[in-house]
Amino acid sequence: MSTWEIILQLLITGLANGLIIALIALGYTMVYGIVELINFAHGDVMMLGCFLALTIVGLLGGEVAAPWLAIGLMLLLVPPFCAALNWMIDRHVYRPLRNAPKLTVLVSAIGVSFVCVNLGMFWGGLPMEVFGGGAQAASAKSFPDLLGYHNLLGNDAVVQLTSKEVMVAVITVPLMILLTWFVSRTRLGTAMRAVAQNPTAAQLMGIDTNRVVGLTFIIGGALAGVASVVAALYTTSISFQMGYRNGLDAFTAAVLGGIGNLPGAVLGALCIGLARAVMEGWVPNGGQWSNTVVFGVLILVLVFRPTGILGSRVREKV
């Protein structure tokens, strides 16, 4: 492989992984922008979405004859499920604690995360064919490879751009554009920005803050739901522990970009995806150091620019 081919390949894989992290990071950063809560359960909501996706594929009969139908069905069912779950978590755990000290809410978020992880393990232990008959509740589960292996640049091409990477971009990028439009142009988006800037003033202006917060959790959850379908299709393997790692990556992305800032979260996520790709795919024996690099960069950013990369330039937090 020539240097250019290597760079191109790293860009393709890095951006694909980064876009998935970005979808999760958006949910993180939106919730933080509105209620200043780091929702540690967010990654686990995404994990439960993956289990629902696998269950749907399983009910359709494993290796599906019509993959696009299965993908469509998953995109139709999983995001509402995750949105409802996220809304329920807010309604029953965070909202009663809205006026409690920040630490209380944070600890309960960790608690919710544990509950979700265990739900995921029980789910994986169901005696279903797709879960290996439930024999190994804790083991990672194979997700059917619905898109197969098709190199769009030709099967002999050195650089690989597969249908999976295209799928990631086709689903995630429009969604991000839609979200930006929603937040900046619609009435509800304006209300969200108002609550983010000053909840008390927003309430005085007649905005139902509880409704806006609930809506934020619903949108964040739906994005996590889409991310779960995309991640499951892309990595073709899921596990009850994946939420922790994905959540951590997304959280890092949000902080890196400037927490509370939407474009910042996407930028942070793409940086992480690319950094990992460079470490794993280019630096000799770099895979074991990729976490060190990612978190090292995070520390440097926090030391020299505590607000994150885009944190201070954009004033609005949503």
Binding site: M1, I6, Q9, M242, W282, N285, Q288, N291
Partner: peptide, 22 residues
């Protein structure tokens, strides 16, 4: 041609596979 430690908890090994393939 290569001797590397990997992060077993990372979501996927796609970049690593590219390196191995080359």
């Amino acid at each position: 041609v290569g001797f590397e430690g990997v992060d077993g908890k990372s979501g996927n090994f796609k970049s690593l596979i590219n390196k191995i393939r080359s």
